[in-house]
């Protein structure tokens, strides 16, 4: 009778292989099944298609700020006064939470020159996404976020409050001296 007795322990590799292979196929299959269900929530193709917005800077008066919408987000376009520019440049950059010089907050135009009077930033507080109040608001003459009290200076740099970063700069370029394409 000994030749007909086949206990599992005598032949473990074949069963174990099938067991592990089935399990592994199941895990991979579950992952393949789950990914489309998760990824569908990411931005759709039409949302992602990078839209652009053109802004005519000459329509913004000195000391005035306009808000344009880009990718569903508000973008601040501010025509800064000389006083605001001077204030932004008088700051010791090393003391800032998110160090950046005033020129690093700007983009050069087609002739390689800065237009320091025009400051263009995404108008979303880097804390929790509110739209800060502009027109020399807050302790640093720039922007103040009413939600949780973040103060930004005249270059949109974070100076006080819970926000970790400066107001974000959108990708943009000067088409002419006064026409800007955002996006």
């Amino acid at each position: 009778m000994a030749e007909t007795v086949s206990t599992p322990s005598e032949n473990p590799s074949r069963r174990d292989f099938i067991y592990i292979a089935t399990g592994a196929a199941g895990v991979v299959g579950a992952g393949l099944y789950a990914w489309p269900l998760i990824d569908q929530m990411n931005p759709a193709a039409d949302t992602k298609a990078l839209s652009t917005t053109e802004v005519d800077l000459s329509s913004v008066e000195e000391g005035q700020q306009i808000i344009v919408k880009w990718q569903g987000k508000p973008v601040f376009v501010r025509h800064r006064t000389q006083k605001e520019i001077d204030e932004a440049r008088a700051v010791d950059v090393s003391t800032l939470r998110d160090p950046a010089t005033d020129e690093q907050r700007l983009v050069v135009n087609g002739e390689g020159k800065y237009e320091p009077q025009y400051l263009i930033m995404i108008g979303i507080c880097t804390h929790l996404g509110c739209v800060p109040i502009g027109n020399n608001a807050g302790d640093y003459d720039g922007w103040f976020c009413p939600c949780h009290g973040s103060h930004y200076d005249t270059a949109g740099r974070i100076r006080k409050g819970p926000a970790p970063k400066n107001l974000v700069l959108p990708p943009y370029q000067y088409l002419t001296d006064t026409l800007v394409k955002i996006g």
């Binding site: 998760i38 931005p43 949302t47 804390h127 996404g129 509110c130």
Partner: peptide, 29 residues
């Protein structure tokens, strides 16, 4: 604005924060 603030809570996490918020929004806002 409640939705904006609460979904932005997840942006606080390093590295993956922004991906999570865009995944929650299905867009950029």
């Amino acid at each position: 604005w409640g939705a904006t603030v609460i979904t932005n809570l997840f942006s606080a996490f390093p590295l993956v924060g922004e991906s999570i918020t865009q995944w929650l929004w299905g867009g950029f806002a």
